[in-house]
Amino acid sequence: MNPLEKLHEEIDGLVDSFTSQAIVGDIWGVGLTQYTFWMFVAIALLLIVLFVFVKKQAAHGLVPRGRFVNGVEFLVEYCRDDLCKGLLGDTWRNHFPFIASIFFFILANNIVGIIPGCKPGTGCIGTAGALALVSFVYFIVIGVRSQGLIGYIKSLAPEGVAFPMNAVVWLIEVFSTFLRLITLAVRLFCNLFAGHVVMGAFALLCSLFFEPILQGITPIAIGEAGASLFWLAILLVIYGVEIMVAAIQAYVFTLLSAVYIQIAEQGE
């Protein structure tokens, strides 16, 4: 069938368009890729939204009025109550700026990616890796600060277990701690990257199946146009799922960061 013959190369083209390409400069040296560009767009949007919010909140006093202030406040309070107070207990004020910054940064990047034509800034492993690296270093520094370097390294071994088992479990724990860096980055990156590739693939199928009807109206073309509508319906469903995934992935990343900070502080 005509549409499916062209599918393979089109999908290859799609995946190629999603991999990082340098707009300016060189991909391995100094340059600017399309993801970094969209990340800067998302950062600008985030700063504008937050500073308008702060100004409006200062103007209105203690009672929030208007949908914008209430909406942003809902997010901030959700971040504070669910992520910080619920997990971190007494020290939540120290960690709240970091947790809230991570949450809003990833949320802004993901939401910008949902707009048709824009890419999410976190859709490349560079950005996701940078965020995961900051989170990883942060919670290790918190662990070292609260228990001392040797104490933190020792705390990775469980108590009450005899010597040989102790060491084996310690080794596994060290490995899994370093694995947290990789899983955080890869989870965020894969969800955004693959989600958009799948959306692009269904859009591609929709348009490929629609092409025959532009060339001539035959029964097969009409059948294929019907299939095109089917792909469109699935595309809309996946679009909705992607919107949810944008928020959920921001939440999961921040939640896991908070959990790691809590584990590092209490010395489990």
Partner: peptide, 23 residues
């Protein structure tokens, strides 16, 4: 795909640290 590329990694790192500081 899975290897972080410097033109993305370093600006992202610096941008996030700056944002964190500002906020």
């Amino acid at each position: 795909i899975l290897v972080p590329k410097p033109p993305e990694f370093i600006p992202a790192l610096i941008a996030f640290l700056v944002i964190w500081l500002i906020l």
